[in-house]
């Protein structure tokens, strides 16, 4: 195997460097492989260091300062974090984000699983339906969100009109209603990613051995029972993947909120990233924005860890 040079890695590196000086062409295979590996890796690692790792650390430092970019950051210790504890706007944004993430994630998991189950059966126009459902994933959320707000506009909106016709009058409009704005924003988020997760579930469904269903049928289990007792548990691996990916995406919700509601009405759809954007790039309070962005990292870390622990115990192996 190509991996066996492990333990001798570093001495070989020194040897290679010395040897390179006298006989540049005769490197040992291991050394040339190590050299190639480092050469291949270095551009990407350099870029990651400059544009991901360093900014992350810098943001942590800035979170302990007062900073408006014009004047140099001034160390204020835990002031920003103290402010966060007292800031009711932040509490509101965190609660909204968690509600969005919880409802949006559960919603998209249930819907994509159901849709995959439908698409896994043969029916006419199936591939057309699959393409249609996947299409939103590659469209720009912010651009389609403009269309959604027009559709939901109380005066000219087609969807508002249809809702009115069937008796769901929305009065001042869905996006201006404190009760309906959040569900609308969640629905648009689900709409965007539904097709992507459906594809993952479809692959999972296709990997379930058929004999399991035959055995269950022989034992007298009906289609609904088979779905809940067999299909759902056997899709646990996919559900872990979908749940983690959807949670990460949902906690970072911004685009459609920015376009459709700007966090309103009455901050009912204000989210964490919205608040980072507002604190930093509108109010120029970059220290506080950095502190909130680290709160976002912490929330994401905790949620991802909890989900992994929950689903790892239920992993499926054939």
């Amino acid at each position: 195997m190509a991996t066996s040079q492990g333990a001798k890695g570093e001495p070989v590196l020194v040897l290679g460097w010395q040897r390179k000086r006298c006989h540049p062409r005769r490197l040992s295979p291991k050394t040339s492989r190590l050299r190639a590996s480092l050469l291949f890796l270095s551009p990407a690692l350099l870029a990651l260091a400059i544009f991901s790792v360093w900014p992350m650390i810098r943001a942590l430092y800035l979170s302990f300062t007062e900073y408006n970019i014009i004047r140099p950051p001034r160390w204020t210790g835990l002031d920003n974090y103290r402010q966060m504890i007292a800031d009711s706007q932040l509490h509101n944004a965190v609660v909204n984000t968690l509600v969005y993430a919880a409802v949006g994630t559960v919603g998209v998991v249930v819907m994509s699983m159901g849709l995959a189950a439908i698409l896994n059966t043969k029916f006419p126009l199936r591939s057309l339906v699959r393409t249609a459902v996947f299409l939103p994933y590659i469209t720009s959320l912010s651009i389609v969100a403009i269309a959604w707000s027009f559709l939901l506009n109380p005066e000219i909106g087609l969807l508002s009109h249809w809702l009115n016709e069937v008796g769901f009058g929305t009065g001042q409009g869905v996006l201006r209603s404190p009760q309906l704005a959040m569900p609308a924003v969640i629905a648009v988020g689900i709409w965007k990613n539904l097709g992507f997760y459906t594809v993952i579930y479809l692959a999972g469904l296709q990997s379930i051995p058929r004999e399991l269903y035959e055995a269950a049928s022989v034992d007298g289990a009906g289609p609904i029972r088979r779905f809940f007792k067999l299909t759902v548990p056997l899709l646990n691996n996919q559900t872990l993947l979908v749940a983690v990916m959807a949670t990460i995406t949902n906690v970072q919700v911004f685009d459609q909120v920015y376009v459709m509601t700007q966090g309103g009405p009455f901050f009912k759809t204000d989210t964490i990233v919205n608040l980072i954007y507002r604190s930093g790039f509108t109010k120029l309070d970059f220290g506080y924005a950095s502190a909130i962005s680290w709160l976002l990292v912490a929330i994401l870390g905790v949620l991802a860890a909890v989900q992994m622990i929950y689903f790892r115990r239920r992993a499926v192996r054939y």
């Binding site: 544009f51 991901s52 900014p55 992350m56 943001a59 990460i248 980072i276 950095s290 962005s293």
Partner: peptide, 13 residues
């Protein structure tokens, strides 16, 4: 797993 938003302020800077 890192949210891109945490790098926004330093990158802008």
């Amino acid at each position: 797993m890192l949210p891109f938003q945490v790098t926004l302020v330093p990158l802008y800077e």
